[in-house]
Amino acid sequence: MYVELTDETGKVPKKIIEQTQKVLAFAADFIKLPENKEMAVTFVDNARSHELNLQYRDTDRPTDVISLEYKPDEEEYFFDEDTEIPEELLEELDPFIGELFISIDKAAEQAADYGHSLEREYGWLTVHGFLHINGYDHYTPEEEKEMFGLQEEILSAYGLTR
């Protein structure tokens, strides 16, 4: 999987950027994501996170990670109106799955609040966002159990334990 990483803040340590790349590759293999997939991760501050949260979620506060899932739209391709395009073909034509915006301010706050390392917090936020852009959610107790269980499985297997 190809991951484009951007640090808008200029403050993210190199080891966190490298860890983010590695944990995403690990998570992609873990859930058996096709190798041709692509995504983007941008590290932002709380002010930018607040703007994005307001824009995309209509929530007037900063948040730790914003996940924007991308689903290809068959209208973007030049097929006859009557042609039904299989989902697999759409996914192959456009491998971009989404993007994450991770607040470095929230990551630092939460690592301190939860009493674990900054590495663990960045890993948690990365895998959490990654699972969201791959169709996982936590709106119901069943979804939450599935998503958080898988998230912890991935982090533990990777070595980012509490």
Rank of each mutant, 00 (worst) to 15 (best):
A112G: 02
E143K: 10
D7H: 08
E119W: 00
A25Q: 14
E121T: 15
H116D: 10
P34R: 12
F148L: 06
G123P: 06
E74C: 01
D29M: 05
L52Q: 08
D29F: 03
N36E: 13
E51I: 04
K22W: 03
N46T: 03
E109A: 11
D113F: 06
P141H: 11
E51T: 14
D29Q: 11
I97W: 06
K71C: 05
N134S: 05
R162L: 06
E92D: 15
S156D: 10
E146T: 09
D60M: 04
K37Q: 14
D105C: 04
G149P: 04
L155C: 12
D29I: 00
R162H: 12
T42P: 00
D80I: 01
D58W: 05
T6L: 11
H132E: 12
D64H: 10
P141R: 13
P95T: 01
D105I: 01
I17T: 11
P72R: 10
E119Q: 15
G98Q: 12
E109W: 10
K11S: 07
F26C: 02
N53S: 14
E142V: 04
P62T: 05
A40W: 01
L155P: 10
L89C: 03
E51P: 07
V12N: 06
H50P: 04
E4S: 05
L155N: 10
E91Y: 11
L100W: 04
T20L: 09
Y70H: 15
E153N: 08
I133T: 04
E69M: 15
L52S: 08
Y56M: 05
L68Q: 15
F96H: 14
K22A: 13
Q110G: 01
G159Y: 09
